[in-house]
Design a protein around this nucleic acid. Sequence first.
DNA 1: CCTCTGTCTCGACATCCATCGAAACAAGGA
DNA 2: TCCTTGTTTCGATGGATGTCGAGACAGAGG
Lengths: 104, 104
Amino acid sequence: MTTEPVGAERAVELARVFKALGDPVRLRLLSLIASHEGGEACVCELTGVFDLKGPTISHHLKVLKEAGLITGDRRGTWIYYRVSPDTLRGLADVLALDDAGVPA
Amino acid sequence: MTTEPVGAERAVELARVFKALGDPVRLRLLSLIASHEGGEACVCELTGVFDLKGPTISHHLKVLKEAGLITGDRRGTWIYYRVSPDTLRGLADVLALDDAGVPA
DNA sequence: CCTCTGTCTCGACATCCATCGAAACAAGGA
DNA sequence: TCCTTGTTTCGATGGATGTCGAGACAGAGG
């Protein structure tokens, strides 16, 4: 087994997503969105949870969006965010592989 | 459903581990260790894979170790690292919960 | 048109982080 | 003991990141 399970380029992509999860606020944002009724939440419902100003929340949501972890669409005045299950599942798969050692 | 699935303190712990995974080099180190014969690898076998000096590899291994993702023990001249499956599985569980939305 | 509210962008600041060279520490062998 | 090799720690430096205030943009409703 000389081949590396996680290659250099793939590691860069994965690291970008894991880095997006590497902040307590973003982790809680993702959790709040995922658990919110209907699987989506607007920014106004997320901002009040933290002792952080609007621009900071907006920044974290942008990071999550650019990592492919959430998507947002505007409906009228409000912007609703929901999680992207595929990206999350991809990460879980990688962790499972690392856990199992050498893959099939 | 007003309770937050991932609370504030737990988010801090989880973020620390995800942050450790948020670097391409550390991701590949973890992968290399996990896939190496016997489930363990010594630093000398890891250093040559990257265009990085010894201190940098040592630093990344320290970050992984402090995150609880790997353990290292010295046997004679060499130090062997192996992955901690429990920590990895814990992360996979969290991702699965976020994916599923509201947990059971 | 104006205003109000929700959200984002921009620019700044302090802090953190990845990387390295130099030096220290650990273990084995001459 | 000294030397050599493997690994870590220390200190420094350039670049990334979290946070915020001020302002801009978008949409709804007078």
